[in-house]
Design a protein around this nucleic acid. Structure first.
Length: 345
DNA sequence: AATTCGGGGTA
DNA sequence: TACCCAGAATT
C-alpha cells in the first residue's frame, strides 16, 4: 500500500460524508425500514445491477415473497420467474436456497453478525457487511465498486481495481475514513456518493462534499482514476433453436445449472422428428448481445399439424410444454429471454 | 488467483 | 463501441 498518514488524519472525511448523506440520501423503497429481509433482497438484486434497472424487480419480488418463509416455501420455478430478465440467475437460485437455510438452521430469523451472515448461500463479503451494518449496526465496511472508485480518486491511488487483491486493499483504505458509529449510513453514503456524484464518467465534482479533500481533483486527474488494467473479453456463440408449436402450445426445455441462463427455459435444439409430420414455416435470426458473449440465435418455426404427433414429441423427449398467450404469439419473435418461463392460470 | 456468471445504461 | 454497475461461486 502507498504510505498514508495516521488513520486519525482522515477520519473527518467520513464524518463529513455522513453529514452530506443526511440531506442528500436517495429515497429508495428498501430504505423505509431496516428489516434484514428487505435489505437482503435489495442487496442481492443490486449486485452488479444499477438501481434503475433493479427497482421494479425488487418491488415485484418482495410483494410476492414478503418474508423468509414465503420465499422458502415457493417453487424454484416461480422464484426464477420473478428474476426473469434481470440476469445473473444464480442470485435467484441462491436466494431460494438461503431462505431454506434460514428456515431450517435459523428458525426463520436472520443471524445478526457479519460472520454468521456470510454462511448464507449467495451472501458474500459485501452483502454480509451491508446487512450487518444497516440492519444490525455492526461496524463493518460494505466495500463495493463505489468504494473502489471513490477511494481511488480521493487518494489519487492507482491500485488496479481488477487485481484480485483490490478488495483487501480498498478495505484497508476504508479504515482511514470510516467513523466509529453509523456504519450502515456510512456504507450507504459511499454508495450514493459513488452513484450520484462520483460517477464513473463525468463525475459531478462541483457537487461533491469531498472536493476539498480529493487528491485526484486537486491534481486535475479525476478521469485517470480508478485504474483498471484487465479488459472484458467477448466471444461469439451461435445457437440454433426450433420453435415447435401446435395450437396454443409450444415446447421449451429447462437448461441446467452450467453456463448461462441457469435453469431457465429455452426452445429445444437439435430435435429429431423421425416419422412425425410437420410444416417448416420460416427461420428467424436474432442478434443478442450479452456482456461476455455475442449471440447469433437462429430459430426454425415449425408447425406440428397433428396433435398426436405433438404429444409424441413431448413424451419422447421429456420436454416441458407451456401455453402462451395470444399477445405473445403475435409478437413472436421477441428477445429470447422473454420466452423462458410461462405461467398461465 | 482467475474466470464465469446478464442485461441495461452511458459516453 | 467499450465500460460500468450495492459481487459471489466456481475453477
Amino acid at each position: 500500500m502507498k504510505t498514508y498518514k495516521q488513520k486519525t488524519d482522515f477520519l473527518y472525511i467520513g464524518v463529513k460524508l455522513l453529514k452530506w448523506y443526511q440531506t442528500h440520501k436517495r429515497d429508495l423503497p428498501w430504505r423505509k425500514s431496516i428489516n434484514p429481509y428487505n435489505i437482503w433482497i435489495s442487496e442481492v438484486v443490486l449486485q452488479q445491477t444499477q438501481v434503475k434497472q433493479g427497482m421494479q424487480h425488487y418491488l415485484n419480488f418482495v410483494e410476492r415473497f414478503p418474508d423468509v418463509d414465503t420465499l422458502a416455501n415457493a417453487d424454484e420455478e416461480e422464484v426464477l420467474l420473478y428474476w426473469k430478465g434481470l440476469g445473473y440467475y444464480s442470485r435467484a437460485l441462491n436466494l431460494h436456497k438461503a431462505a431454506k437455510q434460514l428456515v431450517t438452521d435459523y428458525n426463520s430469523e436472520f443471524p445478526e453478525t457479519y460472520a454468521e451472515l456470510l454462511k448464507l448461500k449467495g451472501v458474500g463479503k459485501y452483502t454480509a457487511a451491508a446487512i450487518a451494518s444497516i440492519s444490525f449496526h455492526e461496524k463493518v465496511a460494505a466495500v463495493d465498486g463505489n468504494f473502489y472508485r471513490v477511494l481511488s480518486r480521493l487518494f489519487a491511488d492507482d491500485f488496479d481495481i481488477s487485481n484480485s487483491r483490490a478488495f483487501q486493499y480498498f478495505s484497508e483504505l476504508t479504515e482511514l475514513i470510516m467513523p466509529e458509529t453509523d456504519a450502515g449510513c456510512f456504507n450507504q453514503a459511499m454508495m450514493d456518493l459513488g452513484s450520484e456524484v462520483c460517477k464513473p464518467k463525468n463525475p459531478l465534482c462541483s457537487d461533491c462534499p469531498l472536493q476539498d479533500d480529493c487528491r485526484a481533483f486537486a491534481i486535475g486527474k479525476i478521469n485517470q482514476f480508478p485504474v483498471k488494467l484487465k479488459k472484458t473479453k467477448v466471444e461469439n456463440l451461435a445457437l440454433s433453436y426450433q420453435f415447435i408449436y401446435h395450437d396454443d402450445q409450444f415446447l421449451v426445455k429447462q437448461r441446467d445449472t452450467s453456463d448461462i441462463w441457469k435453469k431457465l427455459f429455452e426452445y429445444p435444439k437439435n430435435l429429431d422428428f423421425n416419422d412425425i409430420d410437420f410444416i417448416e414455416e420460416h427461420e428467424k435470426v436474432i442478434q443478442h448481445k450479452l456482456t461476455h458473449r455475442n449471440l447469433e440465435i437462429s430459430i426454425s418455426k415449425i408447425l406440428i399439424p397433428n396433435k398426436c404427433d405433438f404429444d409424441k414429441i413431448k413424451t419422447e423427449n421429456d420436454f416441458l410444454s407451456f401455453s402462451f398467450t395470444e399477445a405473445e404469439q403475435k409478437s413472436f419473435p421477441k428477445p429470447l429471454h422473454d420466452y423462458y418461463i410461462k405461467y398461465f392460470s
